[in-house]
Structure formats: structure tokens, C-alpha cells
Amino acid sequence: MYKIVRKKELNPTVTQMEILAPLVANKALPGQFIILRVDDEGERIPLTVAGTDPKEGTVKIIFQIVGETTLRLNHKQEGEEIADFVGPLGRPTETEGIKKVCIVGGGVGCAIALPVAEEFHRLGAEVTSIIGFRSIDLLILEDEFKACSDRLIVMSDDGSYGRHGNVTVPLKEMLEAGEKFDLVLAIGPGVMMKFTVLTCKPFGVPCRVSMNPIMIDGTGMCGGCRLTLVRDGKRITKFACVDGPEFDGYEVDFDEAMSRGRMYFPYERHAYDEACNLFKQA
């Protein structure tokens, strides 16, 4: 069992938890993820590591309440325990040789982008962060990004905070103005990452993306997290859990990945509603 040491609501739909898991805290690097189960009957869900405190032995996770499992997780309180917590899984972000980086985070993806931005900052790279949200109510981690970025641009889709528009707008302006990034790293919804890649393409700037497909074991056994890369015109199957989660954005078949991500939508909606009703009655 793994204890919830701290819990904090970042906005009405996004929660941060610090979980006691010393072995994971000791090893996890930015870009890696964990898999958890809330209780004994629960499903296994992957969440990217949002930070660690190896001294205390805790791992920070940030999740959006989108389905039954995250709803159940959000119902757990500080001091309570969850059944399983395993990791760190996947490969960490590759930081070598990167002197100037642009981190593009979308929505709850910003929670994953933050430790990566912090790591580049710690390594002495020049960090530009562009973080985008639908609206001011959903804004998270602004202060944290400010602390590790040489330049921070906050975007909102509805203009309720920061600049009006999506994250590709300032990225395109910077690239057009002749900014040279060693790497643009996009982390967020599939469609956001897809358009970040398209924005980068005319400028030939390297662009990596962090994929978050449906997973079960997360250790290279089930193959559920497979996605397709297109390399030299050939389609190659890769597994996000052991080959990723970060991939060369120019190679990823986003449309396929987004379609696969919706495989269980009707089921998930139903399960979420049922769990909601259960909690309402309780």
C-alpha cells in the first residue's frame, strides 16, 4: 500500500498528490511515468511523474479527473493509501546537448512539462515555456513555470488570462522572428502536439512529443500502448511504455494515436457517470 502524504487541488478538475514510494522517488527522472491502481479491483492507469522528493521518499503526481479511476483517486484523502504504485517506467527526457529549449505545455500536460522544464533549467539551458489552458479556471503551475523559465508565455483559448489563442501562436512568432531552439518539446493533448509539430516543420526545428496512449502493464508485455512512427516512408510499430513515452514528433502518426485513445470512450463515459452517482449517494 502506498500512502498519500499530501493532496492539493490545483483547480476544480486537477489534483496534485504526493505519494510515499521511496524506491520510485529514488529513481524517477523527468519524462518518466508510473502506473497506479487505486484499490484492489481498480484498473491500472499511467500518470507521468510531476516531481520527486527522494529524501522524503515521495513522488508527485498531477491528474485531471476525467474518468472513473481518476474520480476514485480524487476521493482518496491525505493519509489514506492506494493499492499499487509502480515505476519509474519509460525512458527519461533526453537532455544532452540541448542549450536552448522551448517547452510547450497544454492543459494538464503542463504538469508533465514542468519537471522537464525544471531539469533543463537546472542543467543550465535557456528555457522558454509556453503553457496553454482553455480558460483561467483551468490554469495551473504558473508560478512554478515562472521560477524555471527564462521566458514564460501563458495562453488561454478564450482570452480570459494571458494571451488569447493557442500555444502555437507565440511559437510560430518566435520561429518566424528567427529564434533558434535546439529542441521544441510538446506535452499535452494529441491535437495540440500535432499542431506544434506542424508549426515547427517549416523551420526544421527538432520537435519531440510525449505520448500518453492507453496502457495496462506499462512494462513491455501487453502491447496495448503501441503507436506508429513513419520513418523514411516506412511504418514502424513502437511501444510507448518501453520505447517512449517521448518520440520524434515528425515521425508520430497522431491521427492514429488519437483515434486509438478514444477506443473506450462510450465505456468510460458510462463508468464515470456510474461512479459519480455512487459517490453522490454516499
Binding site: 508485455m221 501487453c222 502491447g223 503507436l227 502518426d253
Partner: peptide
């Protein structure tokens, strides 16, 4: 092979047995 509803046996059986 990427279409929704295509499983590896490992995934199909893991979903049914383990999960």
C-alpha cells in the same frame, strides 16, 4: 493492425484474466 478492436493476445488475456 492499429484499428480499434485489434488486440495482442497478451493484452486481450491480461484484460480478461489479470484485470
Amino acid at each position: 493492425e492499429h484499428f480499434k478492436g485489434v488486440y495482442s493476445a497478451n493484452e486481450f488475456l491480461t484484460r480478461s484474466n489479470l484485470m
